[in-house]
Design a protein around this nucleic acid. Structure first.
Length: 196
DNA sequence: ACGATGATGAAC
DNA sequence: TTCATCATCGTA
């Protein structure tokens, strides 16, 4: 039987929008405290491109919080938002380029704060590599054909001027993705939150 | 439409 | 040391 290896670091050492697109259909894999492993299909991501991207945390320079974004690819960037939600990101691109991809939705869990809560992800993961040893990594899943990928503006970044409108959010309807032979029929598109 | 809830970063 | 600001979510 085929051995599934974690997505390697080089997978993430590319522009964030490419990584965000290609993570759709992959599996986010978590090993819980009890040793059990669970796999979750990635169905929604957002790309934060670097210091020039005004929606990116690194747009105003390096701080203790965002420092990990300036490092090598394949490292978890986890931060607390609105006082209660842990946001899971993976750093992309070469050192010096502070870019990352936000994991915004995985199968069965809509919303970045809900999925971290459900999977037990928090600050402990920040700064660690996405690898088996850390208990949180990615594995290749199924390829998602382009026609099933929707691109929209990112959520909650209305302050970012022109960057707020760029289509850097990538969504695939998990219902659609489940049945590969059903690609001819576009399933109902879920109504999404809109910008303010 | 809005309040919960707390770290973060910048100003003072 | 204060203060505004959040890459959200549940309830209304």
């Amino acid at each position: 039987m085929k051995v599934i290896r974690p997505l390697p670091r080089r997978f993430f050492d590319r522009p964030a929008d490419q990584v965000a697109r290609d993570l759709l259909g992959s599996r986010l894999v978590v090993r819980g405290a009890d040793g059990r492993v669970s796999r979750h299909m990635v169905c929604e991501t957002e790309a934060y491109l670097g210091a020039h991207d005004l929606a990116c945390h690194a747009a105003r320079g390096m701080t203790p919080r965002n420092a990990v974004m300036f490092g090598p690819a394949g490292i978890w960037y986890v931060y607390l938002c609105y006082g209660m939600h842990w946001m899971l990101n993976v750093v992309t691109g070469p050192p010096g380029v502070p870019a990352a991809v936000l994991i915004r939705g995985v199968g069965g869990h809509q919303g970045p704060g809900r999925l971290t809560r459900a999977l037990g992800i928090d600050a402990r993961h920040g700064g660690l590599p996405a690898a088996r040893e850390t208990g949180l990594w990615f594995e290749a899943g199924q390829d998602v054909p382009p026609r099933l990928v929707a691109r929209t503006p990112r959520i909650g970044v209305g302050y970012a001027g022109a960057w707020a409108e760029k289509p850097l959010r990538f969504v695939v309807d998990p219902e659609t993705l489940v049945s590969v032979e059903d690609v001819g029929r576009r399933s109902r598109r879920r109504p999404r939150r809109t910008e303010a």
